Amino acid sequence: MLGIRVHKHEGEKVRRKLIELDVLDKNYKVKREGDFLIFPIKERVEGFEIVETEFEPIEKRPHSYREVVDVPDYLRSLLPSSFDIIGDIAVIELSEELMEYGKQIGEAILKVHKHIKAVFAKGSAVSGEFRIRQLIHLAGEKRTETLHRENGIKLKLDVAKVYFSPRLATERMRIFKKAKEGEIVFDMFAGVGPYSILLAKKVRLVFACDINPWAVKYLEENKRLNKTPNVIPILGDVRKVAGQIKADRVIMNLPKFAHEFLREAMLSVKSGGIIHYYGFSHEDDLFGKHEEKIKTVARELGKKVKFLERRKVRPYAPYQYNIAIDFRVF
């Protein structure tokens, strides 16, 4: 093969020039000989020392598990294009037809994503008071506890015992940017603390409530891990807590049932305070029914609301969206 031989001190400058000329052969590794480098090239280039030598090919890693997984061709179109990564655990949703090949799919994910150590399939929908789902082990380590990192914080959790979605990291940062120093925040459905721990880095105090004892156990641990003593974990039904707290900002991250807790949220926010409400909606009416419910509850309590922002957070089913509505209460 053809190569260009240069002194190592000239290496970076020559590399950039070869890329600019589109003659650098990126299928092979650069060779080192003492103080010299030899770049693999596709064709001769004037003005350089050309040598003939052998180069070691670069092993191309697949970008997706779908490139290496062993399933029948007629099922390939059913392979999910994405899955959740929580710490070093992958959780994937498989159709009934693909479950027979779950082990192969899990092993393919492990092969392509070296940082993933365990793969599980969703065995049921999120359900019950604790918002958890059954998980089916596919490949890798048989453990469900992990350490997840996002937005500069660490979150220890058990994916089989608590609800957690890594897909809301951007939304959590949006709220963090809106929060102000000195505020008191009430996180009504806190889970292991992805909102609470992050906000505690900025605000004065965060009351973090959850009914799941496992979630509060991990919330306590995450409070220590992230050195956020201004997080106050509360284990219990938020209905019994509401009204005892007066917050500048209330977070209602329970999209399926948040509308049932609007009274509690409005009783817990200061006059002029902000509520971040989440819900599920069909694309034909993203915000209307939720806003009507918010206005109805406000009237019943003798309060007024001002809508500040409406947004689609993410799709969660065909034609269905997880939506957010920010509103101020007076």
Rank of each mutant, 00 (worst) to 15 (best):
V159E: 06
P40K: 00
L157R: 07
N322M: 14
F48W: 02
A90P: 07
K256V: 09
K114C: 03
E56Y: 12
F130I: 01
S281K: 14
G106R: 11
A298R: 08
D73M: 05
G87L: 03
S124M: 13
A160N: 12
G273T: 00
H282R: 13
K202Y: 14
I251F: 09
D158R: 15
R5I: 04
K161N: 15
S281D: 09
F280H: 06
K13W: 10
E67R: 12
D187N: 06
E93V: 15
F36Y: 15
A160R: 06
F83W: 01
V159C: 12
F176T: 06
R131N: 08
L98I: 13
I197F: 04
A118M: 13
R76W: 13
F164D: 00
A169N: 12
E100F: 15
V313S: 07
T228N: 03
E129Y: 07
L254F: 12
D237N: 14
I211R: 10
S64G: 11
G102I: 11
K304Y: 09
E20F: 12
S82L: 07
K180Q: 09
V216M: 09
I153E: 01
E283A: 03
L205I: 12
L75Y: 06
E12Y: 03
D70R: 11
R314Q: 04
Y218F: 09
G102M: 10
G182S: 11
Y316G: 02
K223D: 01
K240G: 15
S95M: 14
A324W: 14
G140M: 08
I274H: 13
E52C: 04
G273C: 08
G193H: 10
Y278Q: 01
A169M: 07
I197N: 10
V45T: 00
L199P: 00
L157I: 13
R310L: 11
R224V: 10
A200T: 07
T170I: 15
I4G: 02
I4Q: 00
V329D: 04
P213L: 08
R16K: 14
K178D: 08
L155E: 02
D326E: 07
A215H: 12
T228L: 13
E100W: 10
E309S: 13
A139Y: 05
I86P: 01
L110E: 07
V71K: 04
M188D: 06
V69H: 04
F83T: 02
I58K: 02
A169C: 11
H9S: 15
E43V: 07
F83N: 11
L262D: 14
R328L: 15
E59I: 11
V71L: 01
V297N: 09
I132W: 04
M173Y: 15
K31Q: 00
K240R: 15
D70T: 14
F189D: 02
L219C: 11
Q320A: 05
A169Q: 11
L138W: 14
K31Y: 01
A179V: 10
L262K: 04
V329M: 06
L199A: 06
G123M: 08
S64W: 05
G152D: 03
G279H: 09
E49R: 08
Y319R: 12
Y278E: 02
I275A: 07
P57W: 01
K161M: 05
N226T: 08
L225V: 08
P57Q: 01
K29I: 08
L147F: 15
R224M: 13
G302L: 04
